[in-house]
Simulated scan of single mutants.
Amino acid sequence: MKLDQMDLLLKQALKPGRYIHSVNTMKAAVSLAEHYGEDMEAAAVAGLLHDCAKNLRDDETLEYCRIHGIELSELEKRQVFLMHGEVGAILACEKYGVNDEIVLNAIRYHTTGYPEMNMMDKIIFLADYIEPGRTHSEVDNVRKLAYEDINRALIGSFDNIIKYVIHQRGLIHPNTIKARNSILMLISDNNQIRI
């Protein structure tokens, strides 16, 4: 399926605000992909479809997980919305015809991150965080860093997300902690400094 066909289908599936966010994320992803010499077409697809499962009800999300044999942790059972990335990867394949594992993985982990994120994973995670519709107080610094040092930008976004979740008294997904630690170690190794 071509990107314009995906776009039409997605526009019908999402609420208007979520659709606008998806288009903005796609544009940010393409810009980051171009900046870092990555596949801009793959970034466009992943950016556009990253939230394709976001409007599902919890029971629908749980049903997708059950049908596809995805076992949920206790944390994921309590915060089913965290599974919209995993289910989004399924929908991207089944409904939108995406079979590129790099794109599907970027969709799968755009909410939590995970250790050993590749460049496309990082681009989609950051594009979702910095797209122009995001106006939270910490976003401007991360937007600037995204084009200077993608790993430091990711640390900024992870730190801000973790602070927000703590402030909301929410549960922090272990993948987020592992992703943050992995990138901090990478930065430390590259700079040969201790954290």
Rank of each mutant, 00 (worst) to 15 (best):
L62W: 06
K95A: 08
G88V: 03
L72E: 00
T25W: 03
A179Y: 04
S137H: 10
D140V: 09
E131R: 03
K11L: 10
A42E: 08
K178H: 06
A153E: 11
D159Q: 11
I193Y: 14
D59Q: 08
C65L: 04
S137T: 12
Y164T: 10
I90G: 06
A92D: 03
M6P: 00
L9E: 07
Q12P: 00
E71M: 05
R194P: 03
L82C: 12
M83E: 02
D39M: 07
H167V: 02
L48C: 01
I161P: 00
Y114L: 04
L72K: 02
H173I: 07
R134C: 09
I172C: 04
T112F: 05
M119F: 01
N190A: 12
I193P: 02
R18H: 15
E131H: 11
E71P: 00
L126G: 12
L8T: 04
S22L: 01
Y129G: 05
P16V: 09
I162E: 12
V80R: 05
I90M: 05
G17C: 07
L14S: 03
R78P: 10
D140G: 11
T111D: 05
S22P: 00
M185C: 04
M6A: 11
E94T: 15
E148M: 06
A106S: 14
A146L: 11
E116H: 15
N141H: 09
M119Y: 11
L154E: 04
L72W: 00
S188P: 07
M6I: 11
E63L: 07
L14Y: 05
E74Q: 14
A179R: 05
V98R: 02
T176H: 11
M6G: 00
Y109A: 06
L3V: 03
G170T: 09
E74K: 13
E63S: 09
G37H: 09
S31R: 15
R108L: 05
Q79F: 14
M26K: 15
G88T: 10
D159S: 11
E116P: 00
I130Q: 13
I195D: 05
M6N: 11
A43M: 09
M40E: 13
Q79S: 12
